[in-house]
Computed example of a mutant assay.
Amino acid sequence: MKFGVILFPGSNCDDDMMHVLGNVMGRETIKLWHKDKDALKDFTTEDCVIVPGGFSYGDYVRAGAVARFSPIMESVIDFANRGGYVFGICNGFQIVCEAGLLPGALLRNRDQKFIAKNCYLRTETSNSHITRKLEVGEVINLPIAHAEGRYYADEETIAALIANDQVLFRYSDALGEMGEEANINGSTQHIAGICNEGRNVFGMMPHPERASEAILGNEDGRALFASLIESVEGVTA
């Protein structure tokens, strides 16, 4: 399984991803320039494109709105529609929502402030390529760093996400409870991550790549990348 990490103007988590996927997970990892429409020509549907965090195009207009029109995104949309894996994290989640690969939108945080801290997430399903190594109800701890991370969708969309088991994670406390304080940015129904109906596109605001090594004191995020690799390759990662 090969990974490609897109670099937009303003991306700042691309090298973190390159390190984790290449050095920690041991998989071929290539940096993809946002203007290269042919960057995915050697990718198969068993490979994965990472849309990383940061502040693409300075978050002008709104987060992800400009990056969605970068030349590479036409190829990413086609790749996803053919069944290839796409994983958007933080700003990447915003971009894939803007591109229509995932439903809903990411709005300004409830308190209108940038938040950078660790938070708890309750696993809502193991029926996805990035959560298969997790148990339903299992709580993990990952960092967040965003000003526009409040997930929003209309009632019909939320109902469909729940009915189709597309909600991956919800913000919670350490025990998996979802009180108001645990909903750190005010997301609709505490939603922190989702997948598409085809279950090959994933998006989440927290950063698993920032919690994937023992040296950092937290390896909770590694399970997501290991789940994806094991699901696709059929080998322990």
Rank of each mutant, 00 (worst) to 15 (best):
S172G: 11
F202T: 13
Q189Y: 08
P206W: 02
S187H: 14
Q189I: 05
A174G: 12
A192W: 06
P206M: 03
I194V: 12
G186T: 05
V201Y: 04
F202L: 01
N185A: 02
S172P: 12
R170T: 03
S172I: 06
E209W: 00
F202C: 04
E209C: 06
A182N: 11
E197G: 14
G193S: 00
S172L: 03
S187M: 14
V201I: 15
P208Q: 04
Q189T: 10
A192S: 11
E180R: 00
S172D: 09
I194Q: 11
M205E: 13
R199A: 10
P206E: 07
E180F: 04
N200G: 09
E180A: 11
I191G: 05
N200E: 15
E197S: 14
R210K: 12
N196V: 01
I194P: 07
N183V: 00
C195A: 01
D173V: 09
E209M: 01
P208C: 07
A174V: 01
S187Y: 14
L168H: 11
S172H: 04
I191Q: 05
Q189R: 11
N196I: 00
C195V: 07
R170Q: 09
M205V: 13
D173T: 11
L175V: 00
R210H: 03
G176L: 02
Y171P: 10
A174R: 08
H190R: 13
N196Y: 01
E180G: 01
H190M: 10
R170Y: 00
H190I: 14
H207K: 06
G186V: 00
T188M: 10
M205L: 10
L168Q: 05
P208M: 03
G179S: 09
R210L: 07
A192M: 08
G193R: 00
A182K: 11
D173M: 09
H190G: 14
H207C: 07
E209R: 06
N183L: 04
A182P: 13
T188L: 10
R170D: 07
E209K: 02
R170C: 04
N185T: 01
V201P: 09
S187R: 15
A174Q: 13
A174C: 09
G198R: 14
E181D: 14
S172A: 15
I191D: 14
P208K: 04
M178C: 11
I184A: 01
M205N: 07
H207P: 09
I194W: 14
E180K: 03
G186I: 02
Q189N: 13
H190Q: 10
G198P: 10
C195W: 01
S187E: 13
R199C: 10
M178G: 04
C195I: 02
R170F: 00
G179D: 15
G179I: 05
E197M: 05
E177L: 14
F202K: 02
